[in-house]
Design a protein around this nucleic acid. Sequence first.
DNA 1: TATTATTTCCCACTATTTCCCACGTTCTTT
DNA 2: AAAGAACGTGGGAAATAGTGGGAAATAATA
Lengths: 147, 147
Amino acid sequence: MITGQYRNALDDKGRILIPSRLRAEVPGNTLVITSGIDRCLWLFPPEEWKQLSDKLMEAASPFSRRARLLQRRIIAPAQEVELDKAGRILIPPSLKETAGLKKECILHGIKKYIEIWDVEEYGSYLQVHEDEFQEAAEELGGSVSFF
Amino acid sequence: MITGQYRNALDDKGRILIPSRLRAEVPGNTLVITSGIDRCLWLFPPEEWKQLSDKLMEAASPFSRRARLLQRRIIAPAQEVELDKAGRILIPPSLKETAGLKKECILHGIKKYIEIWDVEEYGSYLQVHEDEFQEAAEELGGSVSFF
DNA sequence: TATTATTTCCCACTATTTCCCACGTTCTTT
DNA sequence: AAAGAACGTGGGAAATAGTGGGAAATAATA
C-alpha cells in the first residue's frame, strides 16, 4: 500500500530518486512509467500495470475512437524503467516533456501506484480544483462518516 | 473517546508531542497522518484510517476526475508515523508545509481522530467561520436537545 | 574507422533522519 | 510540603537518504 508525499529533484541527466519510503513498498526494482491523466506521470509495479493495461485493452476495440484514444494516451507511452543502486529512475525525455517536469517534483503514492508532478504544475492543479474538492468533500459528508 | 484541546510546539526537527491524554487513547504506537480538509492535519489510529481510506477508494477509479482529486488530497499525503520514546511524532515536511505549521500548534481530539493546527491558522479559521458556526448551531437547535 | 556524443554504471559527498539520552517543569502521591 | 513520577523540550551521534559527477561502455556521425 503506497502512500506519502515527497518532494525530490530531477538532476541534469533526467534522473529522479524514488523516496525510500515509497521504494520500500515496491516489489522488485523495476517499474512501468507512463503518462497519467492530468499533467503527471504514473509509475506502476509491473503486476499492477499488467492488470490495468489488460483491463484497458479488454474494453478497447481498435474500432472505437475512444478506446484508441485511451490506448494512445495511457498504454502507448508506457516504458519499463529500472531503479539504479541509489534508487533512482531515469525519466524518458518524451515523458518528461509531456508532464512538464522541470527540476523540482512532487512524488506521491496513491495506494497502488506513484504519481510524479512538477511542483508548480501540481500547485496550480490543486488551486484550480480547490472548489471542486470542497464540493466533493461536502458530498462525502453525506455518505462517509467516522462512526 | 479522544477529546481535549492542547497547545504544544514543534521543535526544530519537526517533532511534536502528542499530549499524553490523547496518547492514552491511541492503541499501539503508530498513527497515520494526512492532510485534512481546511488547513490542518489529521491523525488516525491505523484501524480508523483503513476504514476511512477504504471508503474513499471504493468509489475511486483513476479514471474519474473527482476520485483522482480526492485521492490526491486525502490519500496521497498519508504516511505512517511512529511515536518515539517521548511520545512525539515527526511531521513529514510536506505535510508541515501544507498545513502551514510554524511552531506553536493546537492539537485536539475529535472522538476518533486528532487534528493539528497552527495556532494562528486555527484562530483565523474560527474567526472566519464564526457566523457559519452560529447558523449551524441554530439549525441544530431544532433537532438536538440535551434532554 | 576514427571521433564525438550519449547512455549506463559506479563512487563519493552532504544533508537529513533516526535513535538515544538528558534536563527542567509540572503533576501526583504520601 | 516533600519526594517521586511523568510530561514537555532539546540536542548529539550514528545511520541513511538524496544529490552530483566521473569513467567506462555503447551508440551515432562523419
